[in-house]
Amino acid sequence: MKTILVLGGTGKTGSRIARRLEVAGLPVRTASRTGGDARFDLDDPATWTPALRGVTAAYLVEPSLSASTDHQARIPRLVTEAVTAGVRRLVLISAPRAGEDGHPLHAAEQAVRGSGVDWTILRPQWFAQNFSEGPWRTGILAGTLALPTGEGRTPFVDAEDIAEVAVAALTEDRHGGQVYDLTGPRPISFGEAAGLIARATGRTIRHVDVDPEVFVERQVAVGASPDVARFLTRLLVAIGNGSEAAISDGVERALGRPPRTFETFVTETAAAGHWN
Rank of each mutant, 00 (worst) to 15 (best):
R174K: 15
G176Y: 10
G176R: 12
G176S: 14
G176V: 04
G176I: 04
G177L: 10
G177F: 02
G177M: 00
Q178I: 10
Q178H: 14
V179R: 10
V179T: 15
Y180S: 03
T183E: 07
G184A: 00
G184C: 03
G184R: 04
G184F: 11
P185Y: 09
P185S: 12
R186F: 09
R186G: 12
P187L: 02
I188C: 10
F190N: 06
G191A: 03
G191F: 00
A194V: 05
A194I: 03
G195D: 10
L196S: 12
I197F: 05
I197Q: 00
I197K: 06
R199I: 02
R199G: 14
R199A: 15
A200F: 02
A200L: 08
T201G: 11
T201N: 09
T201Y: 06
G202F: 08
G202S: 02
R203Q: 08
T204S: 13
T204L: 04
I205V: 03
I205R: 01
R206C: 04
R206G: 06
H207S: 11
V208P: 00
V208Q: 02
V208F: 06
V208W: 00
D209R: 06
V210L: 05
V210P: 04
D211V: 06
D211L: 09
E213R: 03
V214T: 15
V214L: 10
V214F: 04
V216T: 02
R218I: 03
R218K: 15
Q219T: 07
Q219M: 14
Q219G: 11
V220I: 10
V220Y: 07
A221K: 13
V222P: 02
V222I: 13
G223W: 09
G223E: 01
S225L: 13
S225E: 15
D227K: 14
D227T: 13
V228C: 06
V228D: 12
A229G: 09
R230T: 15
R230K: 14
L232C: 12
L232E: 14
T233M: 04
R234E: 05
